[in-house]
Design a protein around this nucleic acid. Sequence first.
DNA 1: CAACAATCTGCAACGATTGTTGAGTAGCTC
DNA 2: GAGCTACTCAACAATCGTTGCAGATTGTTG
Lengths: 146, 146
Amino acid sequence: MKSPAELTERFRAQGLRVTPQRQRIFAALYDNPEHPTAEAVYASVSAEMPTISLRTVYQTLNDLAAMGELVQLELGTGSARFDPNLDGHHHLVCDQCGKVLDVDAEIAGLDLPEDRRQGFVIDATEVVFRGTCPQCAARELSSSTH
Amino acid sequence: MKSPAELTERFRAQGLRVTPQRQRIFAALYDNPEHPTAEAVYASVSAEMPTISLRTVYQTLNDLAAMGELVQLELGTGSARFDPNLDGHHHLVCDQCGKVLDVDAEIAGLDLPEDRRQGFVIDATEVVFRGTCPQCAARELSSSTH
DNA sequence: CAACAATCTGCAACGATTGTTGAGTAGCTC
DNA sequence: GAGCTACTCAACAATCGTTGCAGATTGTTG
């Protein structure tokens, strides 16, 4: 994702204001480009700015998503996750704990032939690999041998 | 998905009872193998059995999902959708209206190489094509020329 | 610096789903 | 067909993630 400075410019260019809250959110996303939930971003920013509201975090994340500066993922893990990585890529999702990791591999043949699109205009193609992460697998193992 | 008669057997085999409510739900899914939400199934069954409760529909759909007789899809469309089609297949999702269609095409090369799995045990691979369905595209067009 | 509009916050509300309770109904087995 | 027990219903509450709202606050522009 863009640097906080670049995002600041983009916000101004759109007539959006650059508040301290937003700057902290930019920084939090830039420092920690995982797939945070809104709650996670809130927790991170709250540490430095205890008065910020969760509402503001949602607001800013939505603004960023609307501008295409991050992607909102809906992976059925309960809450939305925001992905600052804009390069086309795919995800590994742990069904146990909801963890999301990026897949570092090209996946070929993802183009849906015209005659299979049923009239849809396709904007994005996502591949989700669901399974169990190493930590959860270990936890399962230890509880079953117990 | 299995026929109502087969589901009846499977329920009995599991020690679950086969009530008229459940039978109607089986039939509704069998007749109309779209990707209904719980609410949609409820609406469909309510037409014939006005006293059925949404609670019962959720219960039965969850039972079916637990038995593997249908798949619960989480596509970020607000509510869960239940997919009676058990063959490995993929989905077209309309970002505007939330409609979900099956993709009738094999997609090759979906195997994630061992060295890209980051320790995950992969159970399932889903491909989601997101875009705009013909109806929503038409609606957009007519409202913009207006 | 003043003024205006955008933003922030705290709280209430929302939609989807599940828990609970208790009373009534009715599968299923013998 | 009787009895056990699962199931259903209804009504309501609660949960969780997210968004709407009102009033106070504050970037930003001239």
